[in-house]
Write a protein that binds this DNA or RNA. Sequence first.
DNA 1: CACATCAATAACCTCTAATTATAAATTGCC
DNA 2: GGCAATTTATAATTAGAGGTTATTGATGTG
Lengths: 301, 301
Amino acid sequence: MINARQLEVLCAVIELGTTAKAAELLAVSQPAVSNMIRHIETLAGFALFERERARLIPTPEARHIAQEAQHLFTQQRRIASIIEELRGGTTGRLSIVATPSIGQRILPQVIAKFLETRPKLNVSLDLGHTDQIANRLVSGQAELGLSISQPRHSALTVRPIAEAQLLCACPAGHELALSQTVSIEALNHARHISYSGDTPLGQIIDAAFSSRGLERRYFFEVRHTMAALELVANGVGVALVDSFALAGRDVPGVVLRPINPVLELRAHSATSKLFPTSHVALQFQNFFRERVAEHLGAVPS
Amino acid sequence: MINARQLEVLCAVIELGTTAKAAELLAVSQPAVSNMIRHIETLAGFALFERERARLIPTPEARHIAQEAQHLFTQQRRIASIIEELRGGTTGRLSIVATPSIGQRILPQVIAKFLETRPKLNVSLDLGHTDQIANRLVSGQAELGLSISQPRHSALTVRPIAEAQLLCACPAGHELALSQTVSIEALNHARHISYSGDTPLGQIIDAAFSSRGLERRYFFEVRHTMAALELVANGVGVALVDSFALAGRDVPGVVLRPINPVLELRAHSATSKLFPTSHVALQFQNFFRERVAEHLGAVPS
DNA sequence: CACATCAATAACCTCTAATTATAAATTGCC
DNA sequence: GGCAATTTATAATTAGAGGTTATTGATGTG
């Protein structure tokens, strides 16, 4: 079957009129073009040029083929540019699943930044709790998982990707907002909005309390940081929120105070061992780490 | 730049899962596939497969490329089939100019037959007098000319392509229709519809008359056979018509009689020396000659 | 007529993509 | 555990497509 190179030579000769000019354009010697034309003719089984008075005159058939070949060249260039873009990570598909506290604020911001230099990238972002993340990753439905607590699954590769801390969110003018830091003990004496014990944040906070011999008390149980923040903003009470959910933005009517002692929080990224991870997913992982480190504090890479 | 062969190997490995099966499909050895994959990876600049436990697992990038490559394969097959069809003359473009007497009846019939085995052929049919035919051919607007009189132009190749004869068309019941043949002399004593002296038919008929020392007389001058036939059918008079215009069909109300002596008529085909003539045009030329010979009498090829 | 330009040919070279043969790793099975 | 089957990878070599230079012969042109 005829190949692209042969069509390339054919088109060059038809367009430029002579083998010498075609050879110059293609940066090969004139006999190379001459031989190729002859070879194509034997492949095709019919004449593509009339040889008359030392000139090559293309037949209607040759013109027809040359015209159709343009589509092939288009496809060829398309593939080449796709490979080029895949190498640079500027095209392809990136599917991410994240827990809500990461996925609702900081992640969209970082993705937006990531897309600025990769306008053709196709992104899918899904939210889910840690188990769902693990599920999607091992089933191949998603490529990259971002979660506060580390997903436990033998087929997953989990890495710490960012560090943050828990802050105390108080309604503006609340008594806890009067001091520069908030002690853990103080929370038990305030209207405390907190997380159920089976959520990652709930477990972290529980651990902090129990390590000082305290039992966590709260009057309002939520599952997501955003819900807690919203309640605080409406003066319902105080809550511990992670800095991922805030993503550096002020929430009107809410004052943030550091906890004493500092409550560290570590975000993790996860990929499946069952499928290769795309170049762009790894790129994003690093990009996320770097962007978050700039604002919230680094994690060793 | 990556070529079609390389993409072919890549797709085969992704689809079949192993290099061995891909090699079998592509009818090459397994190491050939293995080396090719490695080569493509260096070309692309990134990994296309993860090597894990003696298995090749395609990366998302590789899948992406393979999917896009399908379009390239489609184009490649399209070109191959076009070449195939051009060889057989079943595709392409055939542009014909003919004089009205040929182009109105016999030519459309023959073209229709020709197209039966070449449904993809693109045909252009134009009518014009002999000078116009020559013009269109030398200017490259048409490829094949069919004419009764031979076009005279140094850049044209003219060949006889069919023979026919002039017949006398009489209204049914006309006195000339009573005998089996009609003599030329008889025409001068009937209401004779004939052709102006600057038309091919007019010149042929004039020559026949003058060779017997007669002068052609007629009361109605037309330029085209079809017009004459129509007039005869309406009882206006008698006319000499060429058998091309009749194309073997009976015209209601018209009786045909041979002329005595027989008036031979020769159709010619013409092609330009300035442009190569397509394969399909030459095919049609032969096809036309053969089809007409079957019905109206052969011409030596 | 001299000269430039064209395609074609000859003889040789180069490198891609193939070959065969074999190694090394993993899996399935008894 | 050990053997057979299956996998990818490597080494050494070969075939051939596509390229080179040098040259020829034909064809216009100042």
